[in-house]
């Protein structure tokens, strides 16, 4: 099963979350349903960024796909994701390789 990696970096917040949603929409429209969103290099993630991830998850699951995440390297970001119980909603691992999937394409955001 082919998996798309969306590699996020730096700030994902209310300012750029609308563009991130467009990237996700584009990938879904192209027929992709399995994603790993790589959060390792994210330095700041707010509720609008989280909402974009949950929206992708719901859309992907509607099409029998799934969205997995990697943990941000920053410990405080990990704590925020645990506060919001993201680790119950998503499968989150330390590295992309831990998912043992074939990555067909990697998209970076912001570019």
């Amino acid at each position: 099963m082919e998996t798309i990696v969306v590699s996020l970096n730096d700030r994902i917040d209310a300012f750029n979350a609308p563009q991130l949603r467009e990237v996700f929409e584009g990938l879904l429209s192209a027929g992709h349903v399995n994603f790993i969103v790589d959060l390792r290099d994210v330095k700041f993630l707010d509720s609008a960024g989280m909402a974009a991830l949950v929206t992708l998850l719901k859309r992907a699951r509607q099409s029998s796909g799934d969205v997995n995440l990697t943990w941000p390297t920053l410990e405080v970001s990990q704590r925020i994701l645990k506060l919001t119980k993201f680790d119950r909603v998503f499968t989150i691992k330390n590295n992309i390789a831990d998912f043992n999937v074939t990555v067909s394409k990697t998209v970076t955001f912001p570019q």
Partner: peptide, 18 residues
């Protein structure tokens, strides 16, 4: 927010309170 289900909205004020 119902955190077990994943939410599109509602994380913001929840986080502030936490």
């Amino acid at each position: 927010p119902n955190l077990e289900d994943g939410q599109i909205r509602g994380y913001g004020i929840f986080l502030v309170n936490q």
